[in-house]
Design a protein around this nucleic acid. Structure first.
Lengths: 105, 105
DNA sequence: CCATTATATAAGCAACCACTTATGTATTCA
DNA sequence: TGAATACATAAGTGGTTGCTTATATAATGG
């Protein structure tokens, strides 16, 4: 792996919000509209983070109807490292289960 | 580890020049003036990178006379991850051995 | 003691980043 | 078909980054 690729990778995961997104995706695939509730961020902000993660090859997108379903790319060369790092981070305050309970999913 | 600490860590290593610095330090402790030759960068630029690495707890500094000798902090929580990542990167073009041959060390 | 060497730090600057608001484009559903 | 929903993208903005040049400080060596 070259230095510029490594930089792209580390810059992609070197952001609190994106780490949180990845932490969620490590559990299950999610849609943008679910992230807006989970992260309490606007939809364009999420979209832009996803674009950055996609550019680094960390996530996949699957268009289904009006939704875009995002999931972790488990084939990424540094996927094991990513999982290791995510495991060090605490569980998010808001959870997907909470969303379901609130009838948002 | 909290999200902001992880971000600080990843931002610190998420830079080509700093990855190169760390790659050199993984071999041996070095001084600023040696880095200016190895990386072909100005002295203040190096100093500022070292400050950032120090702030993230990745390196130690040891003042000896007019020199400051920098070395990797092998006690850092994410030291094994760092070594793993550095091992994926190619050996730098310029080497310490080359410096010695040129009579600069 | 004075010149040299090694380093830190400050100010300035261009580029980049992460957000915002605004808008365009599909898709679904009544 | 028209309203609502999900999403992408563009433009604008304030803050950050990584460099530069300039300068200060401290140690060494003649």
């Amino acid at each position: 792996m070259e230095y510029d690729q490594m930089e792209t990778y580390l810059k992609a995961i070197g952001d609190q919000k994106r780490l949180l997104i990845l932490k969620f995706l490590a559990k299950e695939a999610l849609r943008i509209c679910e992230f807006t509730d989970l992260l309490e961020m606007t939809q364009p902000a999420i979209s832009q983070h996803m674009r950055k993660l996609k550019h680094a090859g960390l996530v996949w997108e699957e268009k289904r109807g009006r939704w875009t379903i995002w999931s972790l790319n488990t084939q990424h060369m540094q996927y094991p490292v990513l999982i290791h790092l995510l495991d060090l981070l605490p569980e998010p305050r808001r959870s997907i289960g909470r969303l379901i309970a609130e009838g948002k999913k």
